[in-house]
Every structure is written in structure tokens, then in C-alpha cells.
């Protein structure tokens, strides 16, 4: 194992470090605004859910959404720029770095950006009166796997894209519905059982549940299923992304 994917990761980290501030504000603005608007604004009018205030209820889910958006955007707009506009991938493939190393490096990099956004969100929670349990220390592992899932999903889109407009499908038809219906803003038992089952087959609701359980130290048997789903999705999505990127790059 020559770990060449780490060189791809390092290249991206180096480039990103040059405009870290704009990047973080861009990625974190939205979830923080949601936390303030929904948690403080709307939350005042809403009764407790499962013994949590509305702000406490949505905060762990918004952590998950910050990770999802950061990872997905990096692996679409970021990766596509390196693929098509800057031809960075082409340059890298002329070295011993293979298309598989490259794909894995891009996924892990996107996951890293997602993880970073999520960690900053978690660290900021006490400012909003959310006091996390010691179990919260496990949340970064969940966030990294979540980052792998959505970076890989984004990279699949990149491998299929012929222009930036293509990513509108991804954001409008996949990310936004996941954001709204994965149990961040309301419990899934409010939905029709069929809809609820559909959501359960997708990854984000499991990340939201895990984050909430870890944040408030209320772990139960269902969390094991969630953990399994997250790991399975991370593995399958990464393998899919790497193989589709290979097909895009090697003719």
C-alpha cells in the first residue's frame, strides 16, 4: 500500500489553506443561520420534542447537514473544477498516482472538509445553550463517514457531469430533499409509514439520529443499525465513485 491517495489529499489541503476563511464562512453560514432562525425564532412557538427544546432537537441534525453540504460541494464544484477546468487530474495521472488513488484522495479530502465543518458546528453548540454529553466525542467518527458518503456521492456526479449546471440535479433533487426530510426539523414518525421507510433507506437520517443520540447521551439499540447503515453507505458509495471516476478518466 503506497498511500498515494494521501498526496492528492495534501495537494487539495495546500490549495484550500490559501483561502480558508472564505471557504469556511461559505460552508458554515447556512447551518448557523438555520440554527438561529429555526431554533430561536420558530422554536419559541414549538413544544418540546422527545424531551428536547426545538433548538436542542435540531442542533445535532444541523451539524450533520453542515458536513453533508461541505463534503458534497467540494466533491462536485471543487472536484469538477480540478477535472475539467484546471486539468489537475490529467496532470496527476501522468505520475505514479493512479485513477483509483486519485478518486480515493478526492473522497477523503471531501470528507475531511465535511468533518471540519461539522466539528466547528459541534464546538459552537454551547454558545446556543446546547450542552453536549461526553459521547459527543464520538461524533467526529460519524461525521467523517458521513463526509465519505456525500463526497463520494458528489464525485459520482462529477464523473457523470458535462458542465456545472448538471449539479443542479444533485442539489435540488437529492441534497435539499434529504436536508428537509431526514429528521433534522421534525421526527420521522410524523411522516406516512411508507415515506418514513423510504427515508430510513437513505443515509442522512441515520447520521442525524446518531448525532442526536451521542449529543444527548441517549444511545439505544436502533443506533447500531444506524451505525451499520452509515458504514455500509460509506463503503459502497466510495467504491462506486472511484470506479466511475476511473471510467471517466481512462479511455
Amino acid at each position: 500500500m503506497d498511500l498515494l491517495f494521501l498526496k492528492v489529499w495534501q495537494r487539495n489541503a495546500k490549495a484550500w489553506a490559501k483561502h480558508v476563511r472564505a471557504s469556511l464562512i461559505g460552508n458554515l453560514g447556512q447551518p448557523f443561520l438555520f440554527l438561529v432562525a429555526m431554533g430561536y425564532g420558530l422554536g419559541r412557538e414549538i413544544p418540546d420534542i422527545h424531551g428536547l427544546t426545538y433548538l436542542q432537537f435540531i442542533a445535532p441534525g444541523l451539524v450533520a447537514s453542515a458536513t453533508m453540504y461541505s463534503a458534497a460541494f467540494e466533491a462536485t464544484f471543487g472536484s469538477y473544477t480540478r477535472l475539467a477546468t484546471q486539468k489537475t487530474f490529467e496532470a496527476i495521472l501522468m505520475t505514479p498516482v493512479s485513477s483509483y488513488d486519485l478518486g480515493l484522495g478526492e473522497v477523503v479530502w471531501g470528507a475531511t472538509k465535511g468533518l471540519l465543518s461539522g466539528i466547528i458546528m459541534v464546538a459552537a453548540l454551547p454558545l446556543f445553550g446546547v450542552i453536549p454529553s461526553p459521547w459527543t466525542l464520538l461524533i467526529p467518527f460519524v461525521l467523517f463517514l458521513e463526509g465519505m458518503i456525500f463526497a463520494a456521492f458528489g464525485l459520482v456526479m462529477t464523473a457523470l457531469a458535462s458542465n456545472y449546471e448538471f449539479f443542479n440535479y444533485f442539489t435540488s433533487l437529492i441534497l435539499t430533499p434529504l436536508f428537509l426530510f431526514s429528521g433534522i426539523f421534525f421526527p420521522l414518525d410524523a411522516l406516512h409509514p411508507a415515506a418514513s421507510l423510504g427515508i430510513r433507506l437513505l443515509p442522512l437520517s441515520h447520521v442525524v439520529d446518531l448525532n442526536r443520540s451521542l449529543c444527548y447521551g441517549r444511545l439505544g439499540p436502533a443506533d447500531w443499525i444506524s451505525a451499520l447503515m452509515v458504514v455500509a453507505y460509506a463503503v459502497v458509495m466510495t467504491a462506486t465513485a472511484v470506479s466511475l471516476l476511473h471510467r471517466r478518466l481512462i479511455k
Partner: peptide
């Protein structure tokens, strides 16, 4: 070593 036909220097660096 490969000098490609298209300029693919890394503009971020």
C-alpha cells in the same frame, strides 16, 4: 516525465 500538450499547471499553487 511527461510534458503535456495542454497547460495543466496547478493554478492554485
Amino acid at each position: 516525465g511527461v510534458c503535456p500538450q495542454n497547460d495543466n499547471l496547478d493554478p492554485d499553487l
